[in-house]
Design a protein around this nucleic acid. Sequence first.
DNA 1: GCGATTTGACCGTT
DNA 2: AACGGTCAAATCGC
Length: 310
Amino acid sequence: MAASVVDGNGGSGGLVVTELGHVKELARQLEAQLGGSSPDLCKHLASQISSIAERSISLLITTSSGLAGARKRSAVPFVKGTKKRKTMDKKRHEVRVSSAAGDHPADDGHSWRKYGQKDILGAKHPRGYYRCTHRHSQGCAATKQVQRTDEDPTSFDVVYLGDHTCVQSQWAAAAGQAAADALAPEYNGKPGTNLTVKTEGPTVEPAEQQVQGWDAPTPFCFSSTPATATASWCLVPELSPPFSAPSTSNNWGVSPATSDSNHVVSFPPFEVAGDDVQFGRFEEVMSAIDRADGDGFLDDLDIDVSSFLV
DNA sequence: GCGATTTGACCGTT
DNA sequence: AACGGTCAAATCGC
């Protein structure tokens, strides 16, 4: 993976500039708030930044021919003819998870059963294959693949495939909706703002933005696993959702109240661990925007877009 | 005994 | 043929 951002996209560059300009401003607000007395505001700002940045990335990808295709090897084979694998039509959602335990990623709230392990070419560590424990009892088709990253032994790339249709997920959905209602009521009904917390429950978006749980086509799907309930949240990027963490947790994008509550779920270009917003390549992006002087700014952005993709 | 894990074999795709 | 994903028998742990 070595694709660099090149603004070969014609008209969308300006829109991306506008979006990243918003990101830049939000980032400055966030920096001003860091260390302050309002962690919730920080989380809110971070969420907005994520949303806008991801929209920009999507713009770049969809308008840059070949980039999306070169992003990953075709681990999920192309559907062709009638012979298709069970996984072919599964949606894919990938996250990187750090675990203090070191030997396994943190609990994501679902119960998984390991059904295989493979050494992957070019990878130092084998990939584990898991499916939902309720696969047979309830026909839940969700699977996940867990692979320790080469760079960081405590980090894992977790790829979720397919929908959770088991009862546990329905329950989680209800918990997630409840958490959504509780966590940010101040945003509901505000003009110009729209918080959408997608769960795996019966309440779904009426339009094509119907997303469910893990496999939602949005970069902001994550799972929360309180001790007594599980929930998967997805934020619809088009809505620039303001977001704050549940009042019961000061974590954003992480699973609170578990034995591995200090693990990190990263949403590139930045990651959040507890109240600490850690800027990695995001700073690079901001710096590039600072250097930007018009349409050609992306030429300065020698950044692997694929590193943002989760 | 039951459920979870391990591991080699098998299958589909490239 | 190589590779990734899944199956299923053997094994393990409670």
